[in-house]
Every structure is written in C-alpha cells, then in structure tokens.
Design a protein around this nucleic acid. Sequence first.
DNA 1: ACTTAATTTCGAAAAATATGGAAATAACAT
DNA 2: ATGTTATTTCCATATTTTTCGAAATTAAGT
Lengths: 106, 106
Amino acid sequence: MKLEKAAAQLEALGNPTRLQLYRILVRAGDDGLAVGSVQGKLDIPSSTLSHHLKRLVDTGLVTQERQATTLICRANYPGMNALIGYLADECCADAVCAPAVGKALV
Amino acid sequence: MKLEKAAAQLEALGNPTRLQLYRILVRAGDDGLAVGSVQGKLDIPSSTLSHHLKRLVDTGLVTQERQATTLICRANYPGMNALIGYLADECCADAVCAPAVGKALV
DNA sequence: ACTTAATTTCGAAAAATATGGAAATAACAT
DNA sequence: ATGTTATTTCCATATTTTTCGAAATTAAGT
C-alpha cells in the first residue's frame, strides 16, 4: 500500500461522523445497509451523509450496489484489512507491538 | 478506546506529511529522533514540523523527552496498538477479515 | 407521461487545517 | 551576562473541509 493511499483512508476514517458511519456499516454485515437506513441511524441531512459516504467510497473503504431506487452500502473489509496491515507493518517495523495486534485477533 | 479518540488519532495519521513523520519515528526505533534530525529528513520548515509533531503528541501517538536543548521524539507503540486494536475490533465485529489481520502479523 | 421515493449534485457559508516567516523561549556553554 | 543551538509560539494567509438547503437526478410504480 502506498503512503498516499493509506493517508487518504486514515483521513476518511478520521472524522467522528464518518467513523461512526463506517461502524454502522460494519455492524450491518454482509447484507449492507441502504443509504436511507444509515441516515435514520445517524440523523444527519441526506446531502451531508452523501458527501461523507462518497469519501469512504472514493478511498475504497465502502462499496455500493444499486437495488432499484435504493443504494446498498457495505464496509469493504479487504480495504480495511489492507489499511490495518499497513499500520501494523509501519508500527512493527522495529518493535514490540506484535502481541497487541495478536490480541485484536482473539 | 472511545470513538472520538480513535477518530482524532486517525485524523492525525491521515495527513501525508504526518504519516511520513510517524514512519520516520517508527523506523528510528527506541532511540527516537531529535526534532532537528526529523526536520533534516522531511525538509520542511521547523514551524510547520512543530505543528505536525504537536498533533501527533496531543493525540498520543508520539512521545517527547528533553535531552538538553534537543527534544527526542519516539513513536508511542501502545498508542498505535490501541488504535489498530480498535480498527480490528470494528472491522471484525461481524466478519471475515480475521485471516487478513493475521497475515499482517507475519 | 406522471408520481413517488431515494439519492446525489449544486452552491454557498462557516469552520478547521496547513503552511511558514519572524519573534520568543529553553537549555546549556563560555 | 552573553552567545549559540534547538524548538516553539505568534501571526497571518491560503486551502480544504464540513455543513446543509434547494434543485436535479435516478429508478421504479401506476
């Protein structure tokens, strides 16, 4: 993973609203969630939500699939894994932190 | 870890200059690196660097220790591990991505 | 074609971030 | 005390981000 891409993904997640949004999608699992359903959970205007979603989609953290008029959004696990892998590699280049990453697995 | 804190750390890392800066500190290992040495590697004005460093320190990703006139900076591994753990937990809440996280360990 | 529902784009204002020169501070040596 | 080096704070500016109402678009359903 290139540093620029990692930074873009980190920045995308580095906004409380978007991180919350991403969490909601993760919790929705493989079924995903329609934009409208997400809006119900976040209670923000649709245009604001659309901008945030776009950011997550553009950076490869979320995917979207049309079903008639509704747009299903899903957390893109491979994208997140690549990011976590990048961070872990950066973090563990010299150190000491493998155990804690391991802990996240349990 | 609280969502707000995770978001602040992600945002701190979500800037190419700061991510590069953080990488440099990780690679410097336990010895750390003086602010001036970092500046030499990044080639940015000291005031700009100081702002970025402050952001990483404030969010708990970097620590600093005075040695006479120079300030030694170190990557704060526990801070990063907590963040990676948070992301892994969020990501793996329902899914499918444990194997990839495992891969990051190797 | 017309309507309805879902979502995005446009446009614009407020807020936050990024950048860096110049001055201030910190810590020490002489 | 003065000088020197290292780093931060102050200040101002340019850019980017965030926010959201209103209008436009998309995709059915009737």
